[in-house]
Lab assay of single mutants.
Amino acid sequence: QGEKVEGLQAQALYPWRAKKDNHLNFNKNDVITVLEQQDMWWFGEVQGQKGWFPKSYVKLISG
């Protein structure tokens, strides 16, 4: 089970394309609201879409 977080935002360092239905698509420089953190994967929201993404593709910009 991941840790729920509030008020964290991350900026995409690279584009990410979903490999599964529960993954989040985003483009480089998109700002993602992080909702949950697990070891290597984070759950977040961007442009009304929610899903999992690899944390190595983003950098935290707040929180």
Rank of each mutant, 00 (worst) to 15 (best):
I32P: 04
I61A: 11
N27A: 10
V58W: 00
Q11D: 01
K50I: 07
L35T: 05
W42P: 02
F43D: 00
L60K: 10
M40R: 09
T33W: 08
D21L: 13
A12G: 04
H23Q: 09
A10Q: 02
P54Q: 02
L24N: 02
V34T: 01
E3T: 05
F53E: 01
W41C: 05
M40S: 14
P54D: 01
N29K: 05
H23R: 06
F26T: 01
G63C: 14
L24D: 00
K20H: 09
A12R: 00
G63P: 13
T33S: 10
H23M: 07
P54L: 07
L24W: 01
E45W: 06
V5M: 11
F43Y: 10
W41T: 02
W16G: 01
S62E: 04
A18E: 07
W52F: 07
E45R: 13
K20V: 10
V5S: 10
G48Y: 11
Y14G: 09
Y57K: 15
W41G: 01
V31T: 13
T33H: 07
L13K: 05
Q49R: 13
W41N: 09
T33Q: 09
G2N: 08
Y57T: 13
R17V: 15
K19G: 11
I61Y: 07
G7E: 15
E45S: 12
S62N: 09
K55W: 02
V58R: 00
W16M: 05
F43L: 13
L8C: 06
Q37Y: 03
E45T: 15
A10E: 01
G44K: 01
Q47P: 05
W41M: 11
Q38S: 09
G7F: 15
K59W: 01
G51M: 00
W16P: 02
N29Q: 12
S56G: 09
Q1C: 12
K28E: 08
T33F: 06
W41K: 03
Y14W: 12
T33L: 09
A18M: 11
K55T: 03
L8F: 13
T33D: 15
K55Q: 13
L60Q: 14
Q49S: 07
W42F: 12
N29C: 08
R17W: 06
L60R: 10
M40P: 14
W16K: 03
K50E: 12
W42Q: 01
K28D: 09
Y57E: 06
S56H: 15
G48S: 09
D30E: 11
K20D: 10
P54C: 01
K50F: 07
E45L: 11
Q37M: 15
K28M: 07
Q1D: 02
A12W: 00
K19M: 12
G48T: 03
N29V: 01
Q49Y: 05
